[in-house]
Design a protein around this nucleic acid. Structure first.
Lengths: 205, 205
DNA sequence: TATGTGAGTTACTGGTAAGTAACTTCCGGT
DNA sequence: ACCGGAAGTTACTTACCAGTAACTCACATA
């Protein structure tokens, strides 16, 4: 039945290949596209060419899967961030611009449904929830990184600039849910970021 | 059982007081706080001190209720907008600032859960859906109004400025879901908007 | 007093979702 | 040939949710 290739037959950690991974990848895809509450484990398992029992052999609960999903999204996000930023080491201004360029490029793809973690925050309504904390910590890290980048510029209010950049970034993700591809206001994010940087630099004499 | 007061006993339009309205108000509250998919009609009716049957006497379906909810949210949003803008007629710059001031004030309240319509866009996953169109049209109207305001300023790229302002606004709503009250980046929106306006004006000679 | 209407109550259908039980099948290594 | 584990299958429980049926109650008005 067209099994995918089988790499190392190690029985250690790499042995947990296939089914679990197939299910997980499918879950990530579906959670992102249809929302966490919008897709059940049955649908996930079926879409992965498996079934519910195999699902529960790999995951303790749907909640556990969602947790892993969010962690994976964060991992991918930082990889994306790192790869954008790595092109201009030691040049915070270029790094910020690269982030906005990369965001626009990503937003232009059809599969883009905005920010996975941010979207989750809409669905996760209980603020005491572990998932809520996960999202919160992620957003705080993003904020911290932007503050850091802003601190690399010669501005007197790096926190203000970093926060402003975060608003542009998240505003882009949020509006992308409604405006297809790059037809929405997200296309204005990069020039706005540039203008903001200049303005905050000038305001610092 | 503690019935609320009864005003005009008109049998015309004002006669549809009470239950339907109680249910509707409760629904708006719950949809906003817990999400559209996060609350059932049973819970709404019960919370309104009524029951499911009375609910279905007033609303054709949950979907119909959700539609009305979104329309009501949009109505309230424009009322909010108008009241902020009305304080500075003929002064687009002050009007924009007033919007950001009002947003920050609103975001500082505990009940704030960001943008109701935008949040709905996260939950409504089917782009062909009537609700999707409702949200899309709303966001397009907001964008149009911001373009309009920007056109009132002496800038060569009003669309760019309007879009940038929309990103700040929506970024504020989006991040508000995660950061309590005004502790998040939303506090930086007003100064950033001011800086952007100045920058776009200066860029136009 | 009759009557209609708005509203509450109970109980149901049908569907979907999370999670479990018990069994079978396939396959790789010994 | 045997065994163990990983995966598939069927069927179940429990719970929730949208929507409906049939009935009752309170009451305001003509």
């Amino acid at each position: 039945m067209g099994r995918p290739d089988e790499g190392s037959p190690e029985a250690t950690q790499a042995g947990k290949t296939r089914v679990r991974d197939r299910i997980f990848d499918t879950a990530c895809e579906l959670f992102y596209q249809r929302g966490i509450h919008g897709v059940g484990v049955d649908a996930i398992a079926a879409e992965a060419g498996s079934n519910k029992m195999s699902f529960y052999r790999s995951f303790a609960s749907k909640d556990a899967l969602v947790t892993e999903y969010l962690r994976e999204q964060e991992r991918e996000y930082w990889a994306w961030w790192e790869s954008a930023v790595a092109r201009h080491p030691g040049e915070p201004r270029r790094q910020i611009e690269a982030l906005f360029e990369a965001q626009l490029e990503y937003a232009s793809s059809k599969a883009c449904r905005g920010c996975a973690l941010g979207n989750a925050a809409v669905e996760i309504t209980d603020e005491e929830d572990a998932l809520s904390n996960l999202v919160r910590e992620y957003k705080e890290r993003v904020r911290g990184r932007l503050h850091e980048l802003a601190r690399g510029l010669a501005v007197s209010d790096p926190a203000g600039l970093g926060d402003a950049l975060m608003l542009l970034l998240d505003g882009g993700y949020f509006t992308r849910l409604v405006f297809p591809r790059a037809s929405g206001p997200i296309a204005a994010a990069l020039p706005a970021a540039r203008a903001l940087i200049d303005a905050y630099i000038q305001a610092s004499h």
